[in-house]
Design a protein around this nucleic acid. Structure first.
Lengths: 148, 148
DNA sequence: CTAGGTGCAAAAGGTTTGCGGTTAA
DNA sequence: TTAACCGCAAACCTTTTGCACCTAG
């Protein structure tokens, strides 16, 4: 199933999901969510803030964080941390892993096979919420540049 | 093979590995490495700093970061980021994943099966350096406390 | 001797917090 | 009406940087 990308479907999904978590839909949250959907590449809060300001000149950084947290809380967005730098946000909730280029910081989503599951033993009593698989390395572009 | 834990073997391994990366062995680096080996639980730089000060009262935060980076560079330690909080450091270089309790912040190492490998397609030309698999959830202790 | 490492202090990010004013239900 | 949310600014914490002094090879 494709992620809702047009405005109407996106807004409605957003409202429902927020409501389900006891959160309100607001112009800012809608905007932040749309930015995440449009911009593949897993932007960090700072980049989301800059883009959001284009349409909502008054928006503040604190609000961006509030919106991102709300989206994470209602299950529409995942938080992705890959290095010591800023946290990124990923609106793709399907099972996938992140290929991360340590050189340029690019992130590529790669879907995981439907049957993917962890066969390793788990700590006794540990309640799993979700997995996060990151593959660190160098992307094709950077590998090319490096040779020169 | 067990990780070198006694002082002599540890020091020697450390010297060799540092030298192999063109880095010098120093009292501080040795100390930081030993702290990481002794303290399971993947401490962050701040905690390493506090422990290091007990024996090396003059050590500075900048040096701790320098040491940690040196250890990462020479392949003795891995950097682990799990949330928006501070980066952690893991001296276990065997294939394993991290079970992370979102409630108390505890981290449990779980070895991966020897044949573990990723069957998913990778982005064209991407050169893989290493994987990082994190399982987010709630540990047994916290799950227990939560019920009350 | 000298490149590399250390300690200090200041700065640079990134994220969180408190508070008065605003808004969705 | 009112609890939730916003914008602002300051605080906070982690990490990086510049520089003078020290040390391993």
């Amino acid at each position: 199933m494709k992620i809702a990308e047009n405005t109407k479907a996106g807004s409605q999904l957003l409202s429902e999901r927020l409501a389900a978590s006891g959160l309100r839909p607001t112009r800012q949250r809608e905007h932040v969510y749309r930015i995440l959907l449009q911009r593949r590449g897993h932007p960090a809060a700072g980049e989301v803030f800059l883009r959001a300001k284009r349409d909502l000149p008054g928006i503040s950084m604190a609000t961006v964080y509030n919106c991102l947290d709300a989206l994470v809380k209602c299950g529409l967005v995942r938080l992705v941390v890959l290095d010591r730098g800023a946290t990124r946000y990923c609106p793709n909730m399907e099972d996938h892993c992140h290929y991360f280029c340590a050189e340029c910081g690019a992130v590529f989503d790669v879907p995981l096979p439907a049957n993917a599951s962890l066969s390793a033993p788990r700590p006794k009593g540990f309640k799993i919420d979700h997995y996060e698989l990151a593959v660190h390395g160098v992307c094709a572009d950077c590998a090319g540049k490096r040779k020169k």
